[in-house]
Design a protein around this nucleic acid. Structure first.
Lengths: 210, 210
DNA sequence: TAGATTGTTAATCGATTAACAATC
DNA sequence: TAGATTGTTAATCGATTAACAATC
């Protein structure tokens, strides 16, 4: 299982391939060409071929393409969907509760096993634990992934607590830049960044047409 | 107001600068150096200097830095926060309702004025309109931005309806690759992509240490 | 065999970073 | 003046794309 060294950009495209392949699996004859995938997803053909080759150790077969079931298996492996990751969530505000009740994560291999906030409570029928219990629970359940949905101001201090307790990967929804020790990965889901791109595009569109 | 031609990467960093500057405004003497910002946000100094120069037409002053209030004003301009954008949301499932009740967007200049789903209803006290009313409402309110939170399978057809009705920017939370006409921007907030990066990092971490 | 498709090597492109000159 | 900081030009880097050879 050689999974090392997949570039971040390739990695981010993998879910699209998986999505497409699963939904078109039945229609295929067991093989699909990189060209077909590329045109369906509106991507460059060579890029797709390289991406698929990374995922499918055996490689493709000239004139036929790549074996669909191998691809799906390989994609699921790379995406960690074959071994579900347990995670915790910190910050049970609006967004936090939203993500807690969102069913989509399990499908992608993430399982939120506990949620924390300053004070105990419940949300959507799920128990919210006090932050004071966090170190204990992280260790007991051997959690390595955390989702941060606290306000920007408290994000760094929460982050520090998490890394001190052995968290290795952080999915950060707070509008803040987090400093972490070497070896810890922060994946920013920065809504503000996305909005910036959207709104700027719109502005230039409207100015150019007006 | 020359806002054209800011690179996507720069644009995505702007909210971080704004965040930091606003929270540290009172402590400053009216000026801040690119170096100070860079070290606070853990970014490259030259990169920050270039970014700030893009935003602050007047440029910085050697030995002093950039005028903080100009920077904040310029950032807000580029980010569209000085003229709030009205938007609609399509798909009132789990994630959709979550985003509807999320207060954070207004702060960043996005105002969701209506939500749609296949059938009418209410969520968090807000009215959900039937999809059949979508064209009419988009036109009446002159909406240009839409948020898609429908399941992957229906994303493309929703997207088509939106672009046919004049939507110019789409914030897509559905796990699907959308095809749009020229001139329409799709900003993907792909949770699956982020999870892919996280989970892959974790996997290689654990394999290397085990 | 001819043609579709893979795989590889080289060119291009955009973004980041380094080196240095200009300025208050 | 000396030093901090800006601004610019060139080098580097990673990712994408183009060109082409290999193979079923």
């Amino acid at each position: 299982m050689k999974i090392q060294g997949i570039s971040t950009q390739t990695l981010r495209r993998l879910p699209y391939y998986l999505n497409f392949l699963v939904s078109s699996e039945l229609e295929s004859d067991g093989y699909i060409s990189a060209s077909a995938v590329a045109s369906a997803l509106n991507l460059n053909e060579v890029q797709v071929r390289k991406d698929l080759a990374t995922v499918c150790q055996a490689g493709g077969i000239p004139k036929k393409g790549f074996p669909v079931s191998d691809l799906i298996e390989g994609l699921r492996d790379c995406l960690g969907q074959n071994n579900v990751n347990d995670a915790i969530l910190v910050g049970a505000g609006n967004l936090g509760r939203a993500l807690l009740s969102y069913k989509g994560f399990e499908q992608y291999g993430l399982n939120i096993v506990a949620a924390f906030d300053l004070k105990e409570g419940t949300a959507n029928g799920k128990k919210i634990f006090s932050m004071t219990k966090l170190p204990d629970i992280i260790k007991r359940l051997n959690i390595k992934i955390a989702v941060i949905t606290v306000p920007g101001e408290s994000a760094q201090s929460v982050c520090d607590i998490l890394t001190q307790n052995g968290i290795l990967a952080i999915w950060n929804f707070a509008p803040a830049h987090l400093r972490v020790p070497m070896g810890v990965l922060v994946q920013n889901e920065n809504m503000a960044s996305s909005l910036a791109v959207l709104s700027n595009h719109l502005k230039s569109k409207i100015e150019n047409s007006g």
